[in-house]
Design a protein around this nucleic acid. Structure first.
Length: 300
DNA sequence: AACATTCGCAACCGCGAGGGT
DNA sequence: TACCCTCGCGGTTGCGAATGT
């Protein structure tokens, strides 16, 4: 037995909305407000449409203050940053861009922005992040990977000073992780990398981080991706949690709940690029490409 | 000019979450 | 607490427009 349909499909119109339908929907909502029962709305408004269709039409097109047209560089930056942080949670991303809808952003990302970033053929050792386009060599690696959903409790924890936060992918790892990093104060902080675990004895870096902890903690406004590219060798030697981290390509992802972006693009870029900063931080380069690839690492 | 292909965007669909009963 | 119903989300589809051959 399948799910009951949300409306009578046989008597419902599909496809593009006509100006008359738009006018009816607008008029009804202006009169009675958008809140209430979307399923019952079409009948009340005299529309032969599914309630879900009405809702979508209103939210994505008819609602006041909807912004159409080109995205600005600043919006591009915000979308990129948030996508790197939280993945394809378009509604969350849309909440940071007034006037833009999740559908709009999703379409923009899939058709333009992704290509804009990924389509650029950047040399591998370009100095990172001198402009937005230079994000490409970083994002290429991330976007090639399937995005994992946030674990339900990946928000709301505070990591101790000078520690590495890691989101582990198995239940057991997750348990160990939270045993090590207690949840408190209804706040998430992305940790500044532990200097010891950042650099291995041969000088290569095993981690990257985006965003400096002091900025995040101080402002409590924005969380950035804290990426982790593990080097099992250096971790085993230098990180007390190395045993947990012995899988390649683990990425810790989180975002402050109800966060508000309050940085301009330059600051966002700055945050992204300031993986280091203040007492040991992330780096980007592995010393040896073939070694990195053999170990299944990202390589920049 | 005609046809094929690609692109961009609006709309659809199915699912999970959450509230109400 | 189990079930039902609606909402909201993210992935996908379909179609007209634009571009290429």
């Amino acid at each position: 037995m399948g799910r009951a349909p949300c409306c009578d499909k046989a008597n419902v119109k599909k496809g593009p909305w006509s100006p008359e339908e738009d006018a009816k929907l607008k008029e009804f909502i202006n009169k009675y407000g958008p809140a209430g029962n979307w399923i019952a709305l079409p009948q009340k408004a005299g529309l032969k449409r599914c309630g879900k269709s009405c809702r979508l039409r209103w939210l994505n097109y008819l609602r006041p203050n909807i912004k159409h047209g080109e995205f600005s560089d600043e919006e591009d930056g915000i979308i990129c940053t948030l996508y790197a942080t939280i993945g394809s949670r378009w509604s969350v991303i849309a909440s940071q861009l007034p006037g833009r809808t999740d559908n709009d952003i999703k379409n923009y990302w899939n058709t333009k922005l992704k290509k804009k970033i990924l389509g650029l053929n950047q040399p591998k050792f370009q100095p990172p992040f001198s402009s937005l386009s230079n994000l490409s060599h970083l994002y290429t690696s991330f976007f090639d990977q399937p995005r994992k959903p946030l674990p339900p409790d990946s928000i709301n924890f505070v990591a101790p000073q000078n520690s590495t936060i890691l989101y582990s992918n198995t239940a057991q790892q997750h348990e160990e992780f939270h045993a090590y990093y207690p949840i408190k104060d209804n706040m998430l902080v992305f940790g500044q990398n532990d200097a010891a675990s950042c650099s291995s004895s041969d000088g290569s870096c095993s981690q990257i981080s985006y965003g400096a902890k002091d900025r995040v903690v101080k402002n409590e406004q924005i969380g950035f991706l804290h990426g982790f590219i593990d080097n099992p060798n250096s971790l085993a030697l230098e990180d007390p949690l190395g045993s947990i981290f012995d899988h390649h390509k683990q990425i810790n992802i989180g975002v402050l709940e109800n966060s508000q972006l309050q940085y301009d693009l330059e600051e966002v870029k700055q945050l992204i690029t300031s993986g280091g900063g203040g007492g040991g931080g992330g780096g980007l380069l592995f010393g040896d490409e073939s070694k990195a690839e053999a170990m299944g690492m990202y390589y920049f």
